[in-house]
Each structure stands twice: as C-alpha cells, then as structure tokens.
Design a protein around this nucleic acid. Structure first.
Length: 495
RNA sequence: GUCCCCAUCGUCUAGUCAGGUCCAGGACACCGGCCUUUCACGCCGGCAACACCGGUUCAAAUCCGGUUGGGGACGCCA
C-alpha cells in the first residue's frame, strides 16, 4: 500500500493559532494512525508579510503541543525554481497564457460589471486568445504580464470526493482564468502549493473549509500537471461566539497557542480539547491518551459543522473556553505526578521558587505536596500563586480570609502563638496528633475548633480554601508551622 | 451580488447515510443536594435543543423540496 503522506503548511504571517494547531493535530493524528509521514512546510512566498519571528513561533508552538513532524521544515521559497518550471510547462503546453491586462484595467471592468449587477465579475478573457504576434509585440514593448491558467472549456461540472463532505461539485462555467504567476515573475500560492504537494508526494490534504474554492481550482492544476490527485478532506472552521472566523487581528492572544503555554495549560489538554472541536469518536469517551486518540481518530467522523470556540473577552470565568479549562483541570488532577512535577518545576523556576532539593533529597516531599494541592487548582500557574506558601515564606495573605478567619477573632493573636508553643513541644508531629492537640486547645478555650482551624489555614497558606488542615500542617512540617503561627502580629498591624 | 458548504440544549456534540428502540443521549457551563467545622474533588439530581414551512410514509431529528439563518470563497495574499 502506498505510504500516507500529509502536510501542515502554515504561512508565517502570525503566530500559531488554535485553528492552525487543530489542522496540524488532525494531520498528525492521521499520519500516526496510518504509519505515515507528516511534512512541515513553511509557505513563505509572501515576502511582504513573512517573518522569522512567526516561523519560530509556529515551530515552538508545535513542539510545545507535542505535534512532531517527520520531514521539514521545508521552505517554499527554496523551491521557487520548481514553481517557475511548472508555470513554464503549462505555458508551453498551451494550458496557461500571458495576460497583459493591468490591475487598473481589471479593476475598472470589475466595477463596471458590479454596477450592472452582473454576476460574472471574474476575468473576461481579454488576453486568452491573443495571437503569437500580438504577444510578441506586447513583450517587445516591455508590457508586464501575469500568467493565467487557461481553464478548460467544458460543459458540466468538475467534482471530487471530499473525505468529510462527500461529493463536491462546481460548474466549469464558474471558473475564471486565475493568475498563477505575478507580473514580477513570482508564482502564487495556488500553483506553488500544488507543485510542492506533488513533489512531496502528498496523498491526503486535510485543511479547513476555507480552502474549498482553492481546491476545485487546484484539481484543475493537478490535471494539467498530469499528477495523481490526492484525497481531500475539508474540516469545519473554528468560529467565535459571534460566528466569526477566529483570527489574531480580531481576537488577540487568546487564540494563540503560546497564550496557553504561558498561562499554565497542559499541552495535551489543549490537544484533547482541540480534537473534540469538529470531531468525535462516536462513543462517549472524551478524554484520550495520545495512543488512544491515534487509535480512535477517523476522518469519516469529522463534523461538517463549524464549531464555536466559546470564550468571552473580559469575563474572568470564560477567559477561554470553559471546557478547555475543565480538561486542563482534569489532567492536572489525574496525570502522573512525576510528569506533573516536571511541568511545575518550570513554573517554580520561572517564579524563582525552585529548589534543586525538590529533584533529589526532597523529591518525595515535592511530589506529595503537588498531589495534595493540585485538586483545587486550574492551571500550572496556581502552584506559584495560590500554592506559593508551600514553596516560599513570602506568600501573600488573601484579604478575604484574613478578614473572615483572622481579624474577626482578635484573640487568635494570642491563641495561635500559644498553639505554636504546644506544637513546638510535640514529639510525634503527625496529622492525628496535631489535630488532637488543636481540638484539646479549643476545648480549653471553650471555642469551636473551626475558629482555630480556619485561622490556621489562613495564616499558614494565605488562602481561604485548601486541603485538609492537618495534611497541610504535616506537609509544611513542624518547623515552618511553629514559625508561621508564632509570628502573626504583622497580619494585624498591616490590616 | 455569485458560487460552495452547513443547520440538534448557552457551548462541544451523539443520533441523520441503512425512518420506528429518541416526548432526543453524553460532556462543559449553570442551579440544587450529599460529603466536608474550609474550599475543592467526588457522588446524586435539575434546567436546557431537533430553525421554519410543505411533501413522502402507518411512522421523520432522520428521506425530498422550499424558506430562513449561519459560515466560507470571490486578491498579481496564503
């Protein structure tokens, strides 16, 4: 059987956004499932807009997501001779022609056609039937020209079988003679893309529905270039809540893969979320390991409907799609602790909270702590913010619990240091003994234990909520607990 | 405007191709309860959709036609 070869061809005119990432992901899944190859090809023929920063961003984004490729990155500009050769071949075989019409002329004709409400606003074919003499004359005059593809004069419709949408048809009469080479001699996307896909022996083209009109024209090019037609699969698009195509310009960083990397998301959670946007396995399974997803993926189960990336700018809860947040939380809570430890290490290091001992002598403590606190977190960032008290002494105290659990009970100012004294003398510092001692103290004071417990939580972690109090106490350790409980005057003075 | 694609809960979707088992299932979000002297997790429950009109049929979310609606494309961008 022929080897499956797919490609991801981003144009480096912006960062990798989630729509592009999803396209890459689907191609990657398809390749993996069929034991095929994924080719990364940077389509940088638009010199005006292509940037190195964008190329770096795309590559970093894919690496972060874990979408690896088998060949490339190739750069389209490195193959410009191939594109020029192909254009010349089409010219020589009479399947393309030189067009000397200027942009201004075409613009005028176009406006005139629109003014008359004519549907046909395409190229009128003025230069299509120029004689050899006329062409030679114009060339001799140095009139610049573009090369247009000569759409075959045929009745009926052109069609291809889309792997997602089924049979797609378009009447030949709907095509205009489209430009394949600019007047500056540079070939255009429509041609370059086909030439590259032929050279790279691409067997399946999986891309967004926004390419559908390109596809019908490209089918014509494959035919003219006498190359076998690959399979096409057009995926639904990703829209915003107002049903607009998501883009950097209108949506900003929230649609950039980098945003999720910088905001504590787990790469696989993003992949898992993205693959469910426009695809489903036909079962009720929603969480997949990498291997499960490769196994389950199937182009025929791709949706034909555009999907909405549900985020609401300015809404803290919906800063990105809540289902994506939920998935991130799921992986945060269920993933292997070692793997989580590696991810959190990067966050701690970036916040200057990392201690090498966490990887060596204190590794057990480190992983245990992550396991204890991760249930309440949403992103990896929370380990350095809400979880800061476990890794540093300079954690802040949230005003809300400070007021509710500490300041409301002025006597805690003396009670907590007293409790610290008792903890200091405790030989066996365990969850059981610390709890027992705490409750006994509450009994003596004739107060509810909750007053001490909630006060302790606020003082020890700075947070309103957290794990079971005495798990916190044992995790923090006797020394830190005693020190923090003894030294609470500043909480009252600062407030 | 022209061509192409599409149409199930607020969102992601199952069910449509092979009509009945669907007064439509799951997930997220939301609401309530249990658990917990915190908060989450977890568990239990609730709210919530077949765009509309016609046709075919004993029977339509499912097939057909139309309407409306949405999206995409219409560049010497990719």
């Amino acid at each position: 059987m022929e080897e499956v070869r797919v490609r991801f061809p981003p144009s480096p005119t912006g960062y990798l956004h989630i729509g592009g990432a999803r396209t890459a992901l689907f191609n990657w899944l398809f390749a993996k499932q069929h034991g095929g190859k994924l080719i990364l090809r940077i389509e940088d023929t638009d010199e005006e807009r292509s940037t190195q920063a964008s190329i770096d961003g795309i590559i970093e984004g894919m690496q972060w997501l874990g979408i690896d490729w088998d060949e490339g990155p190739y750069f389209q500009t490195e193959f410009s001779q191939d594109h020029i050769d192909a254009a010349n071949r089409l010219l020589a075989s009479g399947q393309a022609y030189k067009c000397f019409c200027t942009k201004e002329e075409l613009e005028q004709k176009r406006e005139a056609a629109l003014a008359q409400k004519k549907s046909d606003v395409g190229y009128d074919g003025t230069c299509r039937h120029l004689s050899a003499e006329e062409i030679a004359e114009k060339e001799a005059q140095g009139i610049p020209y573009v090369i247009r593809f000569k759409v075959p004069e045929r009745q009926g419709t052109l069609f291809y079988d889309d792997q997602v949408l089924g049979r797609i048809e378009r009447a030949y009469s709907e095509f205009e003679d489209f430009v394949i080479v600019r007047s500056n001699g540079k070939p255009l996307y429509l041609l370059c893309n086909v030439v590259d896909d032929i050279r790279d022996r691409i067997t399946h083209i999986i891309r967004g529905q926004d390419h559908m009109t390109n596809t019908t024209r490209q089918v014509l090019l494959y035919e003219a270039l006498e190359a076998p037609l690959p399979s096409f699969a057009h995926m639904p698009l990703t829209l915003d809540l107002k049903k607009r195509k998501i883009s950097k310009r209108s949506h900003g960083e929230i649609v950039a893969v980098q945003f999720y990397r910088d905001n504590g998301f787990i790469p696989w959670a993003l992949c898992n979320f993205l693959c469910l946007l426009g695809w489903n396995p036909g079962t009720e399974q929603e969480y997949f390991s990498r291997e499960e997803l490769i196994q389950a993926f199937d182009l025929s189960r791709m949706s034909r409907v555009n999907s909405v990336f549900n985020f609401r700018p300015g809404d803290a809860k919906f800063f990105t799609d809540p289902k994506l947040i939920a998935m991130n939380e799921h992986y945060l809570r269920s993933m292997d602790l070692e793997a989580l430890g590696t991810m959190v290490q990067k966050e701690l290091a970036a916040a200057d909270l990392w201690d090498e001992a966490y990887a060596t002598t204190q590794k057990d403590w480190y992983l245990h702590t992550l396991g204890l606190i991760r249930d309440r977190f949403h992103t990896l960032k929370d380990f350095t913010t809400a979880g800061r008290a476990y890794f540093a002494e300079d954690y802040g105290v949230d005003p809300k619990p400070l007021k509710k659990n500490v300041l409301k009970h002025p006597d805690l100012k003396t009670w907590l240091p007293q409790l610290a004294e008792r903890y200091k003398g405790l030989a066996d510092f365990s969850a059981e003994t610390t709890e027992q001692l705490c409750r006994e103290f509450a009994d003596e004071l004739e107060i509810k234990p909750g007053i001490l417990i909630n006060g302790m939580r606020t003082v020890l972690t700075g947070q309103l909520a957290g794990p079971s109090m005495f798990d916190i106490v044992t995790t923090l350790g006797q020394e830190r607990v005693v020190a923090r409980l003894s030294n609470i005057d500043h909480l009252y003075t600062e407030a």
